[in-house]
């Protein structure tokens, strides 16, 4: 599998670390909403199909990227910097 790092170009998946479901929202840090924190930390959409997920180019530029990848075919339809940075 190749992931096109927006900074480094297409690189082998072995250079990346999977950081999981990118559809989760971290609650306000001061919030004591147990349900919201539970959902953020433990619940996953686990889509069969296009899946929005974080990867870190740990073996390269170390940036995090948001990848939309089909979990049934492994086809990657988009990769964008997680910071929404211009590069």
């Amino acid at each position: 599998m190749l992931i096109s790092c927006p900074y480094c170009g297409p690189r082998d998946v072995s250079e990346f670390t999977y950081q999981g479901d990118a559809t989760r929202t971290r609650p306000d840090p001061a919030s004591a909403d147990a349900a919201a924190w539970h959902e953020y930390v433990y619940e996953r959409s686990n889509e069969a199909g296009p899946h929005r997920e974080f990867w870190q180019h740990a073996g390269g530029c170390r940036a995090h990227v948001v990848v939309i990848r089909n979990t049934v075919t492994h086809e990657i339809s988009s990769v964008a910097p997680a910071r929404g940075d211009r590069i």
């Binding site: 480094c8 170009g9 530029c61 170390r62 940036a63 910097p81 940075d85 590069i87």
Partner: peptide, 20 residues
């Protein structure tokens, strides 16, 4: 551009990551 760099004599520089 990403990954761009130069080498001159004793010095060199190249991009290794976003803004880095």
């Amino acid at each position: 551009h990403p990954g761009g760099g130069v080498v001159t004599g004793d010095r060199s520089g190249f991009g290794i990551g976003p803004r880095k």
